[in-house]
């Protein structure tokens, strides 16, 4: 077999592995994907929550904008995203899920891009169907796109708040995931995911 064929093969394997490695590096800083379980309380450290359904890894989210890719920092530094495809009910009773981002500065706006197998009220960020124990919201995709004004980009802490997952019937906070956007801080292991599945 010609050397060029082996070389072509090996080069493509290496290129693909490099892309995979780069993907891992970007996974914690660009469009970070995370899992949500309810009820899980206040997530103050990395934890695996167990209950009805599969065990779910969760942790506080810290996005270090300095860790983003060159292309992102060069072309679109003022937009950052978070995403989830998984909201599981690990509790014992059905709940109606409402979501809320807390402590947002007025000049950081967030676009909510939500698609799901449940009905969804855009105004209140509430899913209209009950989520049964052991189940997840089917075909879920939520992207939160944060528009960060340029003057925030040099701040050590750009956003410190979190995502509240609320029982819409009782207004009880079932799960709170702290979210921080920082600049150059040492990131914790934040994602528990990093890819779409």
């Amino acid at each position: 077999m010609k050397k060029s064929y082996i070389l072509g093969f090996v080069l493509m394997v290496a290129a693909t592995l490099s892309l995979g490695s780069y993907s891992a590096a970007l996974g914690n800083s660009e469009l970070l994907h995370f899992w949500i379980a309810v009820p899980a309380g206040n997530i103050t450290s990395p934890i695996v929550v167990r209950g009805a359904g599969p065990p779910i890894s969760m942790s506080p989210i810290v996005v270090d904008l300095q860790s983003r890719g060159v292309l992102k920092n060069l072309l679109q530094p003022q937009l950052e995203g978070l995403s989830t495809h998984w909201i599981y009910n690990i509790g014992k009773k059905p709940v109606k899920i409402r979501l809320s981002l807390t402590n947002l500065p007025p000049d950081i706006t967030v676009d909510w891009d939500v698609n799901s197998g449940f009905g969804y009220d855009e105004a209140t960020h509430t899913f209209t169907s009950m989520l049964n124990p052991g189940s997840s919201i089917p075909n879920l995709g939520i992207d939160w796109i944060f528009h960060i004004p340029a003057y925030y980009l040099d701040e050590p802490v750009i956003y410190r708040g979190g995502l509240e997952v609320i029982d819409a019937d009782t207004n009880t906070v079932l799960t709170f995931i702290p979210i921080e956007f920082v600049n150059g801080a040492v990131s914790n292991d934040t994602s528990g995911g990093g890819s779409c599945h």
Partner: peptide, 22 residues
């Protein structure tokens, strides 16, 4: 290789899936 390493958690810190990222 990446699907295997990530799926079986053999190197899930070193590699991310390339499915969704690219």
């Amino acid at each position: 290789i990446i699907a295997f390493l990530v799926g079986y958690k053999l190197a899930s810190d070193q590699f991310g899936s390339i499915c969704c990222r690219y």
